[in-house]
Design a protein around this nucleic acid. Structure first.
Lengths: 206, 206
DNA sequence: TAGATTGTTAATCGATTAACAATC
DNA sequence: TAGATTGTTAATCGATTAACAATC
């Protein structure tokens, strides 16, 4: 089929498939099937085949999927064949952990600029990157043509920082502040809220 | 209606409602409506009313919802009227950031025990909590009757740690390792994978 | 060939929305 | 009362699943 109108919920599962395929490739595996992926991920094999069918025909009847090939196709579809430079706003404990996190590189992202407002943080260096004054963010984002940002500032400042990011040309924001932020329709936002996940689970406890 | 069989997708939105209500209460607000919540959260007012109706009747026709009352009801429904003690496995940068994070307390969670395997980390102290050897986890979890855990260890160790947690009586796991873990059906698992969120967004970029 | 697994169709299932009577 | 907003019903919309012809 290979439509270019895949549902967002399907797009959201592609990174999960990509993660599993990357892992299998690292194990030296060459072929997998929707059945095997189903067992590994807890997603039905029919759904996996249907999801992939939105983007093309990647498998062979009777055989399954070539792992490296499907992995590369998913990378292409998700636009992570190349590495996206990422701006990180907020250099507290969380910002520090994110800047130090080694897992982004293999997934297509590299944090290339750190920002904070606290005078004692500005100028600090981490892995060759200096923490800059948040006021310099627009200049740096434009200079480096950064389109992706992570917000790790306190809730009270998140909307203001988001506004700044949007004005500077950022098109995708991963927001760790536990607050909903408003952005124009052409800017993507995703949220990370561990407390919300914990509450979701405690509903089922006791 | 107040059924006791609410869809999981509805349960997952309750923490979002609770977050907004808590924020409004802190602002000194007393009354809100499904319409106002809709605008703040980007969820339709009909859906908000429908979601809440699974659990009871919390509003007044013509008026709306009393913020503090609805907040307290959601806390009760999500079982976060009291604070859950939480075990944290993995004391790297991320573990450190989580242990230091001040946001959990108001949401119903308190990290009460830290675990790692690295000898130079064991014995370190943070906010009155000592980092313990992972081998002590079963004893501590049982002693303190901990039911909720956060996994912040490398992917390669995540399944092993999850097994240990399950055997020790943990019933809810928030997993930061970018890997799917297998647990018995009566154990809840939620995942946090920032790279997956970033890839979800870059699909729409360029 | 015989066996296996895809890609796709049609059926089912579930979630969201629109609309409105009830009522504060 | 008049205006506003809930809770709920029925309709719509969309996602998932089951099944199987195609075919490697």
């Amino acid at each position: 089929m290979a439509s270019n109108e895949a549902p967002d919920i399907v797009v959201g599962r592609l990174p999960i498939y990509l993660r599993a395929l990357t892992f299998m490739a690292e194990e030296g595996r060459e072929i997998t099937s929707s059945q095997e992926l189903s067992e590994k991920l807890g997603i039905s094999s029919a759904q996996i085949r249907k999801d992939l069918s939105h983007f093309g025909e990647f498998g062979k009847q009777g055989t399954g999927y070539e792992i490296a090939y499907l992995r590369d196709q998913l990378k292409r579809i998700l636009h992570v064949e190349h590495t996206w430079p990422v701006a990180l706003a907020g250099y507290g404990d969380l910002g520090h952990a994110l800047a130090n996190y080694g897992g982004f590189a293999a997934k297509g992202f590299e944090i290339v600029a750190l920002f904070d407002t606290a005078p004692h943080k500005i100028g600090q260096e981490l892995a060759g990157k200096q923490v800059r004054d948040l006021a310099e963010l627009p200049t740096v984002v434009r200079e480096k043509n950064i389109k992706v940002a992570i917000v790790a500032v306190p809730s009270a400042e998140a909307q203001g920082v988001a506004n700044m990011l949007v004005e500077s040309g950022i098109k995708a924001i991963l927001n760790y502040a536990p607050i909903n932020i408003s952005v124009p329709a052409d800017v993507q936002v995703q949220y990370i809220d561990p407390a919300a996940h914990l509450q979701h689970m405690t509903y089922y406890l006791e």
